[in-house]
Design a protein around this nucleic acid. Structure first.
Lengths: 181, 181
DNA sequence: CGCTAGATATATCAGACTGATATATGACAG
DNA sequence: CTGTCATATATCAGTCTGATATATCTAGCG
């Protein structure tokens, strides 16, 4: 799902500014399955406006910078619904953490242990944050997503606790082998 | 981890051609946590060669097009080890499937059911493929990654079976509400 | 009081990357 | 003979990231 389609989808749910869309993607339920930079969001909104899929209204604010509120049009609704009927493309996933595990033979053991500890903490933190997000679920889709993300992070914590010995033991063997030489 | 660093890492393990690197990323253990296009791999290898981090040897082949074999240099080894010492960046994840679940209120129920069925099948297929990949694990990192991926896909299948009713029930209610109107 | 950091807002841009396409050799199936 | 697939190389238009820029205001700290 490209950034324009994602913006359309969020605007189906609620009119928003570019800044609010970025916040929804960063902190809301959409953060579970999507990310996009401001560098992509603002041009996408401009393009959607040019194409007549959304409208843009500039508003002044007290004590705040002026803002641009985007609303989806009927044409935009139709375009989004057509997009949803396309087959979903494959997930896109890149993990520096898993890459580090893949190349763990090339790193010092102390570094490996540090990364594993940080990763367990990261997943535990995300789990706690999701308990709060769960209160904010307003549709079955959001509930489903939150439960999915909680399952994901909980199973990652458990997997790390149960399997990190595989990597740590090997490093001990490596270090011992080095000491013997 | 950008494409140049990933190429370096794979070349630490084994000299390879651009085509072989793409295959390793698509079919090997690296596919669990990474993807990159040929459009990024070939320019990355060229840049690594220019920077002296790898060498490039052109070989003729019988019954096959000529190939370019890349080997890492000592400078490349050092660069890669330095890269591994940097803090891992956040995972990058985009899921069209989860996006479809997020926007499921905007799609017909038949479509939703179809997507859920396909997704269960996808995870089951990946699980079967990983059982084969497991036989090919040659390091503790590869074993760890394979187990991680198997856990990931198995828990996704289970989660879908146990939770898809949330989405399907709501759609039934929506459809029934529409029928009543 | 002044400074810094953060939130709220908009936006741009160099460089990295995707996905499609192109060309080429050869094997295999229909 | 044709089409598809595997093995190989490569390019490129368009998309996107991550950093940066500018601006208004509030809150906290010394």
């Amino acid at each position: 799902m490209d950034v324009r389609t994602m913006c359309l989808g969020l605007l189906v749910k609620q009119e928003a500014t570019g800044y609010e869309i970025k916040k929804a993607i960063t902190n809301g339920h959409a953060s579970i399955f999507y990310d996009a930079s401001l560098g992509a969001i603002y041009p996408a909104l401009n393009r959607l406006t040019e194409d007549g899929l959304v409208t843009c209204e500039e508003l002044s604010q007290d004590k705040r910078p002026d803002k641009k509120v985007y609303r989806i049009t009927t044409k935009g609704m139709n375009t989004f619904e057509m997009a949803l009927l396309q087959p979903p493309t494959a997930d896109k996933f890149r993990s520096d953490f898993l890459a580090a595990m893949f190349f763990c033979g090339q790193m010092p053991e102390s570094r490996l242990v540090e990364i594993l500890d940080e990763r367990e903490e990261f997943h535990a933190d995300r789990l706690a944050a999701l308990k709060e997000l769960e209160q904010e679920s307003q549709s079955v889709g959001e509930t489903f997503l939150t439960r999915y993300a909680m399952m994901y992070h909980a199973s990652n914590v458990q997997f790390l606790k149960e399997n990190r010995y595989l990597l740590e033991a090997d490093q001990n063997e490596d270090d011992n082998a080095e000491a013997v030489q």
